[in-house]
Structure formats: structure tokens, C-alpha cells
Nucleic acid binder design. Structure first.
Lengths: 335, 335
DNA sequence: TTTGAAAATGATAGCGCTATCATTTCCTCA
DNA sequence: TGAGGAAATGATAGCGCTATCATTTTCAAA
């Protein structure tokens, strides 16, 4: 593995052996200069560093990982990086891992069970030192794969009672209940939940339904959509539940899309209303929701904080294995 | 490398050797079943597959990569994944790479030259088969590192005359000129550009200035900010150039932040104006810009298409090395 | 039934680096 | 100056898999 795949005629990429020959030392001394310079005498070290510079040597971590049984990498699996809340989580975990020399291997499940398992297998074949994933593994096969790997596994954005190893999240069911209760207390009658079919959304839906029942309201409507645009979510609600007076959206992007659709349908006045015709609550506390008019009520979750906490748990097995970062209902102009 | 780092007492992770012993074949036959099942007889293949299933064997790609001189990975370097336009690009390239069995190793530069070089070295030590990065390498050292690696390198979001290897982007200078010309033609007088200090933004700034000059306008103002929130960008413009009547923002998030700040400063009426007090143009055509009120004028760039095209160029050296995806000025309510 | 070619499987020797034990060198103290 | 211990460096043997050549098995044709 000395030549790149694109140009077999180029000079070979220098190996540690080439550095050793140029510096007149044994290969393991070069390795020591790179990894443990403190145990190499300064004269020898300078000679080796000079050879490294002249040759442009870049250590081969593939070989080093095999020899040392450490990859210094973390596998990260998210449904889709295009969803800002997960991008924030990846940002947060990267901010912890990268300064420590860990590389992030990113994979996406597209909210598909089969693909999630395939991506887990692909990640595990890279022998990462930990896996951080959004949600808990969906299938028994995925769960078993992770157990067998014997590495730290941190599930995020939800809080299973018994995670494979560790979890950082919040109680999705409770979040749904809190929103449902808020709508009931505000006198809302025709409740709707719009989002996907994943477990986290389903937990929120169940909490939402429970709150409606306890308030003696009619069973809320669930508008199921696959991951898509905010505009798509808005259109789906207006098409499926045009008479709703309160919508809990799976994320702020959907909430914004719905508010925009309501505006176009002339169900949103020129100024934010004290009592909006349709109350809308999102999730994630995206900045866009704060900039939007009306400002968007939301379940505040700090996605980046989830990422940071997950990375810390992944790197330190002595840390608590189940961390509840909680959430907060933030009420703004959207109801 | 058979035990994970977190539990040395667990049964060792099965190797290809263990499968070979259980199936009663040589190790290379197991390798063939995994990589080239077509050249293994069905009886042997079934025996091996059975052993693989029973042992829960997950191939070790670290070892396979070293032995085969192929990692099936691509290093991806972005300034920050929290910026939606780059997240879209990562989504696009992943959609091409993942189905082909490539893993994405993600790194972030935080818009810092030194950190970019460190991240490039970290990526290259993983011996990726290609590098896809936002922008061209900033330093001569980074450029040299990439040349030496002898692998495909695709620079995105800008279009250098002579990329290290390949580039997919658009003419940033021209985009700035087009926006400047639009503002001049609309009778705007006090032009402002708000964004970062990176080369792409600077190219846009230069084009913007050129257009203003050609229209006989006063030199535009440049409001420099480090990567931050839309609200931060809005506040910076109002603090530094409160009398502006036209602002070109480095991205749609900044444009939205500015519009929101204008609204709070009562410089945005309750309904989108036919001739807004301050014209605002962003970049990236984010969905949020389409949902916002006023809808946001923008330089339309398809971030995901950039990612897809970049992945295709990275994988096929016969493809053109410089691809101009162009851009489009989209005029909406924000001016 | 024999022969030849193709298919299938195995043996060998690494890939580039490093854990670990062995040897050499250096330094301090008596 | 010599002895002992610590520091520095080197030798050895893999890590888990695979490229490549060698050998065996299978199949078809004469």
C-alpha cells in the first residue's frame, strides 16, 4: 500500500522503513519518535525528524492500527446528516474526539432498518473504538452485532431503560406528554402530530396521546411522513388535518414548514397573534425557529451537547452509562 | 486486535482463521467467500457461510486494507458540519459512496488554516482512496501533502484554475459580481457584504466590489464575522453598517438572521414590501429561505449536487477534472 | 478411459507498523 | 575505575487478511 490508486507511476509513498534507513536507525526508533518522542534521545530524535520532513513521511495508521490493536476512530451512525439536529450532534461529538486524535467515520441509515444494520456492520468492520449512534439499534441483529463487538456503544436522542452499553438523551414520551398537556391547557381541541415512524417519534406520539386522553380530548391525529422538507410536512398536515388547531411537529424544520404553509393558506396573520389560529410546537430549538416570524415554540434539546456528552461516555467507561439531559418546553409566538 | 478496548474479559472477536477452522477450509477460502463468492463452489461456500453466521464473524477491514492496499474509504474535510450547505454536500457525496461500499471519514477545519493542515494529515494517515474537501487547500504545506499522497483530490465550492487534481464548484467572484450588479440596477447605494474571511467569501467580495465600481457606486462595506449564528450576522451588520440599503450575506442563514434583526428594528414591514427598505441576498438556497417571510433572495447552489458530483469525480479519474455547476440568482421578496 | 483445460482450493510471503523482550549505551555513585 | 541501574536502541515475531503462485479437483471431449 505504498502507491495511491490513481497514479501507479508516482514515487512510492515513503514508509517508516525509508525514514529509518535515511536516519540510520532501526524502524522501531522511528515509530518511537512519532508516538513516544519523550523516550528518544534528542540527537536521535532530530535526525529522525529531519528524515521525516525530507521524505514527507505520513504515518500509515492502517498498519499502526493493526499492529497496536487501536484504530483511534469512532463510528458514528445518524439517520441523515442533512437534518440540522443530527448535524449539531456530529459537530458536538467531533469537537470532543478530534482534539484527542480520534477520527470520525460517518454512516447514515436513511431511517431504514436494513440499511442501519448494513451500516453497523460496515462500521464494525473498521474496528472503531466506539460507536455513537442516533437512537437505539432497531433490530435484534443490530443489537447482537454491537454486543459482540465488545466496544463502547452510546445511543443518543433517546433513553432506553437498558441500553446496549450507554445512552445520552431525554424522555421522548415525556416530551410528547408535556406538549399535549400544554395544548390541552391552552384549550386546543383538535390535536395533530406530524413526523416520521421512527421509535423516538413514536414515543413522543404516545406521550402526546396520553396527555390528550387525560385531558378528556379526542384522540389526536398522527400524520406520518418520511424524512423530507419542512414544506412537505406543512403540506401533509394541511392535506390530512386541515381543521386542526394544534400541531406537534417532530422537529423545528417541520414546524417552520407548517407555519409557512399556514401563512400561505391565510391562517397566519401579518403579525404574530396573541392566540394563534393554529398552535405549533416543534422540537430541537433550531436557530431558524428563533429567527422565524412567528417565533417557534419548541422542545429545547441541545443537539451539540448530546454529541459532546456521548463522546465523553464513549471514551470513558467509568462515566455513568445513562445520562438524561432532559428537555424544556419553550413557548414562543407560534403557540 | 481481537478484543475491544472496553472489556478484556469478553470472548475474543472471531477472526477469519476461526471461521476457516470451523468450516474446515483454508483461510484464503474464507476470504474468497466474503469477497469473491463467485469463485467458490456452492458446497464450500455454504459451509463457510454457516461458520460465519455461527461465529458472528465481522471481517476486519483494517487487516484487509493493509493486505490489499485498498481502504475503501474517502476522507472528507469541511469547515463545519453545522453549516447546512456543507451538511447537504456531505449528504450528497455519501449517497454516492456508501452504496459502493466506501466509508466516509469526516474531519472539520473550523475555518482555521493550521487545523486544516492537521486534519489533512490525520485523514491521509488513514490512507483514504480519495479526499473530498470544501475549498482548495489553504497552505502550501497542505497542497504539497495532497500532491504527495497521489490519490484523487476533489476541491468543492470553488473552482481554482489549476486544482491539485479536480474541482467541482462555481465562480464565486462572478456570483459576487451578479449580486452587486443586481443591487446597482435596483438603485441601491450603500452596499454591504457580510461573511467570513475564507477565500470563497473573499472572491465573492471582490466580484461584489467590482460590480459596484462599474456602476459608479461607493465602495461597498465588508462586515467580517467568524462562523456563527444568523442572529450574530444580523447584529454585526446593524452595528457596523446601520444605514445600508443592500446586503449580500455569505449564506442564507446569515441572510435570515439579518432579516430577523431588521424586523426587530422595525425596518421590515408586516408584509413583504414590493421595494424593501434593505435588500438582502443570501447564498445556498436553503429551504428555510423559501419558508421565511419575506422569502429570501439567494444565489442558488445545490450543495448536495456538489457532493454527488465530487464523489463521482473522486471515483473515476477519467471524468473531467474541473466541473462548473454554475449558480443562479434567485430573486424573491427580500430583494 | 485418458487427456487437457478450467475451476477450486491451498501454501507462501508479505502489507507497514508495533508490543515486548534483548542488548547496548550512558550516567551516577562509591 | 568499576559496578549497577536507568535510558536508549535494536531484534523478533506478529497483527488479520490477501496477492500470487502452486497444487488439486472437476469436467468435457476425444
Amino acid at each position: 500500500m505504498e502507491n495511491g490508486p490513481s497514479d501507479p507511476l508516482k514515487p512510492p509513498v515513503p514508509t517508516l522503513m525509508a525514514v529509518a534507513r535515511m536516519a540510520g536507525v532501526s524502524p522501531i526508533t522511528v515509530s518511537r519518535v512519532v508516538r513516544r518522542p519523550d523516550i528518544v534521545s534528542s540527537g536521535t530524535r532530530l535526525r529522525v525528524e529531519d528524515a521525516i520532513r525530507k521524505l514527507g513521511y505520513v504515518p500509515n495508521m492502517v498498519a499502526g492500527s493493526l499492529a497496536s490493536a487501536r484504530t483511534k476512530s469512532v463510528g458514528v451512525l445518524v439517520p441523515t446528516i442533512a437534518n440540522s439536529i443530527f448535524a449539531d450532534t456530529v459537530q458536538g461529538l467531533s469537537d470532543v474526539l478530534e482534539p484527542l486524535g480520534f477520527s470520525v467515520i460517518l454512516a447514515q441509515s436513511g431511517y431504514d432498518d436494513r440499511r442501519e444494520d448494513r451500516m453497523l456492520a460496515a462500521l464494525l468492520s473498521r474496528r472503531p473504538e466506539a460507536i455513537i449512534m442516533v437512537g437505539a439499534p432497531v433490530t435484534a441483529e443490530g443489537t447482537e452485532m454491537l454486543r459482540r463487538a465488545g466496544i463502547p456503544v452510546v445511543e443518543t436522542w433517546e433513553l432506553p431503560e437498558v441500553p446496549v452499553d450507554a445512552a445520552v438523551g431525554f424522555d421522548n414520551h415525556d416530551a410528547g406528554r408535556v406538549v399535549g398537556r400544554h395544548f390541552a391547557k391552552a384549550g386546543r381541541r383538535r390535536l395533530v402530530f406530524v413526523g416520521g415512524n421512527d421509535r423516538r417519534a413514536t414515543q413522543r406520539w404516545h406521550g402526546f396521546v396520553e396527555a390528550a386522553r387525560q385531558a378528556g380530548l379526542a384522540e389526536p391525529r398522527r400524520v406520518l411522513i418520511e424524512w423530507q422538507s419542512g414544506a412537505g410536512a406543512g403540506a401533509a398536515v394541511l392535506a390530512n388535518a386541515p381543521d386542526t388547531d394544534a400541531v406537534f411537529a417532530a422537529n423545528d424544520a417541520y414546524a417552520i414548514g407548517l407555519l409557512s404553509a399556514l401563512r400561505r393558506a391565510n391562517r397566519l396573520g401579518p403579525e404574530p397573534a396573541a392566540v394563534p389560529q393554529v398552535a405549533v410546537v416543534g422540537l430541537g430549538d433550531l436557530e431558524m425557529g428563533r429567527l422565524f416570524s412567528p417565533t417557534v415554540s419548541t422542545i429545547r434539546i441541545d443537539g451539540a451537547a448530546i454529541g459532546r456528552a456521548a463522546a465523553e461516555l464513549a471514551l470513558d467507561p467509568a462515566k455513568p452509562r445513562r445520562v438524561d439531559l432532559g428537555f424544556e418546553l419553550i413557548l414562543r409566538e407560534s403557540g
